[in-house]
Design a protein around this nucleic acid. Structure first.
Lengths: 141, 141
DNA sequence: ATGATTGCAAATGATTTGCATCATA
DNA sequence: TATGATGCAAATCATTTGCAATCAT
């Protein structure tokens, strides 16, 4: 999760155009949330945020935009075992996830904690490793 | 995956009863597939198998049965990132999975290949670690 | 007998799609 | 202005549910 990237509308607009996407007002608005502010939001989260902002956006456009951002590599879609809803992650660098079984909240885990490539036989060509650590997040004291 | 457990109907019947489930013919039939023969089947796979066997079973019963078997610990439900369908696994011992990005086929990976518990800070109470290794399965030569 | 299980069909929830309208480059 | 984006509503796909009929113990 990139917390508070604080991208300006112009910066977002530029990023969209570099990705070959036209910079519509709904896309810029949604990006402001999904690329900066949001932590692992679902489509519903994005819609609610947009509604709260008075940003007029249809469901189809939310899906279209999120798909376009994923295809452009600006966002990643994740599916966790506890839910059938896709969640989106603006941290597109390799990393893993901790999933709180009680609250459903998701915490990013740096990938350097683990390393397992090249532990399997040569018939396995590894592209990627998804790790979901499930448990309970305890309050620090 | 437990390949070919070759359970008899009586054995399955006994397992069901020990789990507090009555041994109906559809449950015994579905178990024959799902506990012995099948490798990571989806609900559709189970239905097709049943249809091919002439085993009359409704969709609702397939879902009911699979849920009951999961609750009884005889089966595990898994959700992979490439599909919105749940797949079922009769290997209920801890292990991880290799997912072929091209074919969607799934291979079990022994858990002993990896070990990362106790690598996170103490605020993470770890219950379980799900690992999905994505890549391509090459033909052995 | 009686309580659990089945089957059907309708309901739900997430996501996708078709198409006419509209905005951006 | 022409292409691509939007919005709406209907469609689809997986899964769940309500309820009457049926089966296992």
């Amino acid at each position: 999760m990139n917390k508070d990237k604080h991208l300006t509308s112009d910066e977002i607009s530029g990023m969209l155009k570099s990705a070959g996407l036209s910079a519509t007002s709904q896309r810029i608005g949604l990006c402001r949330y999904v690329l900066c502010e949001a932590k692992h939001p679902t489509v519903d989260d994005v819609r609610s945020w947009a509604a709260g902002q008075g940003l007029k956006t249809s469901l189809a456009t939310v899906y279209n935009t999120l798909h376009a951002l994923c295809k452009a590599g600006m966002l990643k879609d994740l599916r966790f075992p506890h839910s059938e809803k896709v969640v989106y992650d603006n941290n597109v660098d390799p990393h893993h996830h901790f999933l709180d079984d009680d609250t459903g909240s998701i915490v990013d885990i740096p990938i350097t904690e683990f390393d397992y490539k090249n532990k399997l036989g040569s018939e396995f060509e590894i592209h990627d490793v998804d790790i979901i650590i499930r448990g309970k997040l305890k309050l620090k004291d």
